[in-house]
Nucleic acid binder design. Structure first.
Ligand code: FES
Ligand code: FES
Lengths: 142, 142
DNA sequence: TTTAATTGATATCAATATAGTATCAGTTAT
DNA sequence: ATAACTGATACTATATTGATATCAATTAAA
C-alpha cells in the first residue's frame, strides 16, 4: 500500500523547488531535469496546481512557474486531495449489515476517527516545514 | 485515495462472519450470499488467509472455513499488509536530493514517523474490537 | 520581425493494480 | 454414488497510475 503516488511525490518536490526560488519564474524544464521528474508529466502536475491556486505561471521565453501560496499553508494533505482524491478509509465498510442505521454506526465512527488522525498527521507536514528540514539536512551534510 | 480496497474490506467482513461462528465450519458460499461478496473472489481471499494462518478449512460436504487466531490478535494493519502490501508512505521521497546521506535524512524520518502513526492507529482496530462494536450497534438498534 | 523558449490544452499510450469470473481436480458427509 | 465442499490456477475486464506526444498561443530577446 502506497500512501503517496508519483504525482503527489513529484508535486511536493516541484513545490520545494519553487519555494526555494520564491519570487522567480522557474521553467518546468529546469525543474524536470534538476529533480529527475518526467517533463510532460510534471507539466500536467504544475497546471493542476495552478488550477488549485498554489502557483502561478508566465508564458513565453523566461517564463515558468512561481509559488503563490505561503509554503507553510500548503500541506501534504492538500496535495494528496488534489492528486489522489480525498482520503477515505473505505467507501462505507460493512454497508450490508449496518447502513440501515448509518447515523448510529459505531464502526463508521471508528473508521472516521482514523481517517481524521491520518489526515491531521499529514496536515502538520507543510511545504514550509519540509523546506526547513531540507535546509537543516543540507547544513549537517556540509 | 482509498485506504481499504475491496479485498481487505471483504476479508474483514468474512472474518467477522467467521468470528461470529467460532468453532464451526462455515462455507464460502454462505458467507458470500449473506454478506454480498462475490463468491469466487471471496474464496481467493479465504485461501490467502489460510496461508497466513488466520483461518483453517475443511474440505468436502459440511466443510468450510473456521477462524483460527484469536480475533483480538487480528488487526486491520495485518490485513492491509496481506492484501495491499506493507504500508509505506512512498518508496523514498526526494531520493535525488538526499539519498546520498540517507541515514541522516530528516524528511525520511518525518515520513517514517507518519507511517508509524498510521500503522499504529490501524493496529488498534482488531477483528475482536469490530465484533464488539458491531454487537453493541445491533443492541442499540433492536 | 523572426526565432527560440516557454506554457496551455489535450490526446494518447503503456504498465500495473484492482475486481471479478471460470474451470477442474480432489475431498468427504450422507 | 453423489452432491457439497475446498485447492489450485488461469483468465478477463476495468480502473488507476505513470508517462509521452502534439500543436497552438505567448513572449523575451537576437
Ligand atoms: S458501514 Fe455503512 S454505516 Fe456503518
Ligand atoms: S528521501 Fe531518500 S533518504 Fe531522504
Amino acid at each position: 500500500m502506497k500512501v503517496l503516488t508519483k504525482n503527489t511525490d513529484y508535486a511536493i518536490r516541484a513545490l520545494l523547488a519553487l519555494a526555494a526560488k520564491k519570487g522567480c519564474y522557474v521553467s518546468a524544464k529546469s525543474i524536470a531535469t534538476e529533480h529527475d521528474i518526467p517533463y510532460q508529466f510534471l507539466r500536467g502536475l504544475l497546471q493542476e496546481m495552478i488550477r488549485h491556486d498554489l502557483i502561478v505561471s508566465k508564458e513565453g521565453v523566461q517564463g515558468g512557474f512561481m509559488i503563490k501560496k505561503d509554503p507553510d499553508t500548503i500541506s501534504v494533505t492538500q496535495l494528496i486531495e488534489i492528486f489522489q482524491g480525498k482520503v477515505q478509509v473505505s467507501e462505507c465498510m460493512f454497508r450490508k449489515q449496518i447502513c440501515a442505521n448509518r447515523a448510529r454506526c459505531v464502526l463508521r465512527h471508528e473508521i472516521m476517527r482514523i481517517e481524521q488522525v491520518v489526515q491531521s498527521e499529514f496536515e502538520k507536514v507543510t511545504i514550509g516545514k519540509l523546506m526547513r528540514d531540507l535546509e537543516a539536512a543540507n547544513q549537517v551534510k556540509s
